Simulated scan of single mutants.
Amino acid sequence: MTSANPVACLINVLIGDASPEALPSSLDSLKNLGYTHVVLGPMDPATPDAPAIKQLFAERGLSPITIFGGQSPETSVGSEDADVRAAGLAAMKATVDLTVALGGTQMNGVPYGVFGKPDAPAPSGYFARAAREVGKAAEYAHDRGVTMTFEVLNRYETSLINTAVQAMDFAELSESEHLKIHLDTFHMSVEEADMFAAITHALPRLGYLELGQSGRGKLSTGVVDPVAVVSHALKSGYTGPIGVEAFTRTILPGFVSDALAIWREPYTSGLSLVTEAAELIEQGVHASKN
């Protein structure tokens, strides 16, 4: 690929188990296709595998991106209880520390609340309280050489942040100039009236632009036009990572598929998907120059 932007791929597009034993061949494939970063699924910050995973990435000149998988009711950063908020901040810091241990410089994820289908709007005051705690974590990350982003999800996964406008409001309330936004075209296809306008609105804070198709499968099959998205972002001046994400039940562990509502097989070959995705990103880069 000729993209000047870093190009990333979620490892679970290819494999369900990101252990040191399972990683090498997938990392080699992504490296050979021109990917520069690989996103790892949520990991236990105390994992003993960190040194081995770090070495696998370093040997290939790839950079890992971690995911903070979301808070629990006991670590809710928007809680009225100061001790609960403190526990949430500590959880975020632990994943920052894991990112450093792995040799990574970026942490994505859902730090502002519990991941999963909400039964009601967020309580009054939650948004601002969560923003301040996430902002503290972003400052902690910045001091350790890590860029922290938060992902904007659709209404079926959170009631807190569903649009780029809400994300910008959250980032401003965080009181951290280093907190960045993660936009995913899968979620935008559900929530945004104008995907391109959403990217433009978030651009001052945009730290990760992820290409995910409406059906969660190959980027060429669905309502999202990945070439147009990449072209628009680059023409608008976006310089951050461009990511690829897809899910299929035959690759993901069952409990992960259940949590993400992946009931079908949108694709059968991860290698075929990431190969095509690299070609589409290349087309978007080329279109941005015309």
Score class of each variant (00 low, 15 high):
residue 204 P to V: 10
residue 122 A to P: 01
residue 11 I to K: 02
residue 163 T to R: 03
residue 279 E to Y: 12
residue 279 E to N: 10
residue 79 S to L: 02
residue 176 S to N: 11
residue 148 M to E: 11
residue 179 L to D: 12
residue 263 W to N: 12
residue 33 L to W: 10
residue 119 D to E: 14
residue 115 F to W: 10
residue 80 E to W: 00
residue 115 F to C: 06
residue 236 S to Y: 06
residue 191 E to H: 01
residue 163 T to L: 01
residue 153 L to Y: 10
residue 237 G to N: 12
residue 96 V to D: 07
residue 226 P to R: 03
residue 134 V to F: 05
residue 170 F to R: 13
residue 31 K to M: 00
residue 253 P to G: 02
residue 241 P to S: 13
residue 229 V to P: 13
residue 264 R to P: 00
residue 154 N to A: 05
residue 213 Q to L: 05
residue 277 A to C: 11
residue 258 D to T: 09
residue 250 T to L: 14
residue 14 L to F: 06
residue 251 I to D: 08
residue 206 L to W: 08
residue 273 L to M: 13
residue 1 M to D: 05
residue 226 P to K: 03
residue 114 V to Y: 01
residue 86 A to D: 08
residue 151 E to I: 01
residue 103 G to Q: 14
residue 148 M to L: 12
residue 24 P to T: 06
residue 23 L to M: 14
residue 18 A to Q: 07
residue 47 T to Q: 05
residue 172 E to C: 00
residue 133 E to H: 07
residue 276 E to D: 14
residue 6 P to F: 10
residue 228 A to W: 06
residue 191 E to C: 01
residue 248 T to K: 06
residue 120 A to Q: 10
residue 140 Y to V: 06
residue 143 D to W: 00
residue 49 D to I: 04
residue 113 G to V: 01
residue 103 G to D: 14
residue 156 Y to E: 13
residue 128 A to Q: 15
residue 64 P to T: 09
residue 179 L to W: 11
residue 184 D to R: 06
residue 290 N to A: 10
residue 38 V to F: 00
residue 10 L to E: 13
residue 84 V to G: 13
residue 63 S to C: 00
residue 193 A to V: 01
residue 120 A to N: 05
residue 59 E to Q: 11
residue 40 L to A: 07
residue 259 A to C: 02
residue 107 M to E: 05
residue 266 P to L: 06
residue 174 S to Y: 10
residue 133 E to V: 15
residue 19 S to P: 03
residue 21 E to Q: 14
residue 71 Q to K: 09
residue 146 V to C: 09
residue 131 A to Y: 08
residue 18 A to S: 13
residue 239 T to M: 07
residue 166 Q to G: 00
residue 50 A to L: 10
residue 204 P to W: 09
residue 83 D to E: 15
residue 52 A to W: 01
residue 215 G to E: 15
residue 127 F to C: 02
residue 68 F to P: 07
residue 108 N to H: 14
residue 36 T to Y: 03
residue 77 V to G: 03
residue 250 T to D: 15
residue 142 H to Q: 04
residue 111 P to Y: 05
residue 271 L to Q: 05
residue 286 H to L: 11
residue 190 V to G: 00
residue 289 K to M: 03
residue 204 P to F: 08
residue 75 T to Q: 08
residue 132 R to G: 07
residue 70 G to S: 09
residue 211 L to F: 06
residue 75 T to A: 02
residue 287 A to C: 00
residue 90 A to M: 01
residue 91 A to H: 13
residue 201 H to A: 11
residue 81 D to G: 02
residue 94 A to N: 07
residue 276 E to M: 10
residue 84 V to C: 10
residue 95 T to V: 12
residue 138 A to H: 08
residue 39 V to T: 13
residue 67 I to C: 07
residue 83 D to G: 06
residue 88 G to E: 14
residue 268 T to K: 09
residue 288 S to K: 02
residue 279 E to C: 02
residue 233 A to P: 00
residue 231 S to Q: 06
residue 286 H to M: 06
residue 171 A to Y: 01
residue 198 A to M: 11
residue 140 Y to L: 08
residue 95 T to K: 01
residue 184 D to K: 03
residue 98 L to D: 09
residue 270 G to L: 09
residue 229 V to Q: 03
residue 284 G to C: 04
residue 268 T to N: 08
residue 64 P to N: 11
residue 10 L to M: 09
residue 136 K to W: 01
residue 8 A to N: 08
residue 288 S to N: 04
residue 7 V to E: 04
residue 119 D to Y: 13
residue 247 F to K: 08
residue 207 G to S: 04
residue 158 T to E: 02
residue 74 E to W: 05
residue 94 A to S: 12
residue 206 L to C: 04
residue 137 A to I: 05
residue 251 I to T: 14
